[in-house]
Amino acid sequence: MALPEAAIFQGLSWNLLSDLQQLFSYGFMVNALEAGTIVAVMAGVTGWFMVLRRQAFAGHTLSVIAFPGAAAASLAGLPLAVGYFSFCGLGALTLAGIAGSRRSHSSESAAIGSLQALALALGFLFVSLYHGVLNSVDSLLFGTFLGITGDQVMTLLAVAAATVAVLAGCARPLLFASVDADVARAAGVPTQLLEFGFLLVLGLSVAATSQITGALLVFALLVTPAATAHQLTSRPLLGVMLSIAIALAVTWLGRARAAFSIYPVGFYVTSLAFALYVVVRLGRALSSRTQTLAPPAEAA
């Protein structure tokens, strides 16, 4: 499963068309691209709301919880997806419980942090118990696009369609509750229910994304594209669209580039996303500097 891909593809030929033909001539590669596309759309939408709600820490914890989930599934001889979805779902319920019972932010993040440590320890335990092919730890943590079956693609598609449909249907109340909870509550928006529901959606998205990027690189798709989109625009609909577009672009480019390289796909996807984020931040910093410098002799 974790074959070096250079063994399959003989390097870039500088002929884009033949490169693409080469890519698509393998069924598993088509599956991988389909799965990547589905996950990128879902992560782009969910991530935009997660960044808006400042729940990146909760998102990161869920992705760490994905690791023992996958390890436990391999240990029990179950499909990895079962482990990812059940652990992330349970993790989301736990986080919702923590958020519901704690009133202060500091004790909430401390509790979430402890959960994260526990998840990593469990993952390590399951991996040590599993004396089989240990190099699969790599793909649990850092992902592999290969070895994705048509059935898995269908599962991902169903989860992604449900997630995106729920988020679209709840878009306005969720946006309201995220930026202005007190007023939303007074206007009759069920803010508590939305908070709970969003954590579940986040858990599903993390579980699905982990299957592609591995538990540790979930953020390449879930946070970085969304954070870049928030930097680029403060318009909600445009922001979600940009977030999806960036997640798709880095997935495709990273995937395609990795196919002709000995370096893993997670490295390319993550670096591309990060590079784009840095460029956008720098661009914004520069433009706001020129703006503040523009009126030259303004009285303080």
């Binding site: 249907g169 306005r172 946006l175 930026v179 939303a184 206007a187 403060s234 909600p236």
Partner: peptide, 22 residues
């Protein structure tokens, strides 16, 4: 860090409690 426009916030006062795709 609040990246939402004033006009969108005002708009939410009008339709922020409505479900469904706008």
């Amino acid at each position: 860090g609040t990246r939402i426009r004033g006009i969108d916030l005002v708009r939410l006062g009008l339709d922020g409690m409505r479900w469904g795709i706008p």
